[in-house]
Each structure stands twice: as structure tokens, then as C-alpha cells.
């Protein structure tokens, strides 16, 4: 798993979350999480969801951009 399907963060930002096994203990799929944009995915999902080039552009995320903050903590300072 090289980059994040949503924000293209590099491999060092990708955390392996969990490996799903079958009843025999064989690997079925792996779940990953991107520490840059918080996208979570499973490597067995349809390509439309986990292939950066096949995903709709609308759903790309640039973590550097300002996104709305719900109940911004700064309001208390």
C-alpha cells in the first residue's frame, strides 16, 4: 500500500489498522488509515473507492486546505 487513495499521502503516513482473517487463520483483507486526511479503507474494496485515479475527483481531500471546524476549540481562548 503506497499512497492514500484520497489525498495521496506517502507510505509513512499510512497506518495498518487491522488484518481480517478467515476461520482457518488465513489473511482475507487489511484495513489502513491515513494519518494525513483520516481516510480509512480496506484493500478488498471496489477500485472506485480505493484507487485514487478511479475515485471521483469531487471526493479528493487536500489536508492543507482549511476545512470547517465543528465547535472550534479556539473559541474558548
Amino acid at each position: 500500500m503506497s499512497t492514500c487513495p484520497r489525498c495521496q499521502a506517502e507510505e509513512n503516513k499510512i497506518r495498518t489498522e487491522h488484518k481480517g482473517l478467515n476461520a482457518k487463520g488465513e489473511l482475507v483483507w487489511t484495513i489502513f488509515n491515513c494519518e494525513s486526511c483520516a481516510f480509512t479503507w480496506r484493500d478488498s474494496e471496489p477500485a472506485r473507492t480505493i484507487d485514487y485515479n478511479l475515485r471521483e475527483e469531487f471526493f479528493r481531500v487536500d489536508p492543507e486546505k482549511p476545512y470547517p471546524v465543528i465547535m472550534p476549540p479556539a473559541q474558548y481562548k
Partner: peptide, 25 residues
């Protein structure tokens, strides 16, 4: 986690459309 906000969404919501990405508790 007091003061922490993380990226959340999108999520397909009840109007049949996705709500966008936000930073939330």
C-alpha cells in the same frame, strides 16, 4: 479528547447526498 479535532466525512446522509469533510471532536 478535549480540544482535539479530526477530519471526518464525507458521509452519505438522509437527504441522499454526502455531507462534506469537517474537523470534529
Amino acid at each position: 479528547m478535549n480540544g482535539v479535532r479530526s477530519f471526518e466525512g464525507p458521509f452519505g446522509e438522509f437527504p441522499g447526498s454526502y455531507s462534506g469533510v469537517r474537523k470534529i471532536p
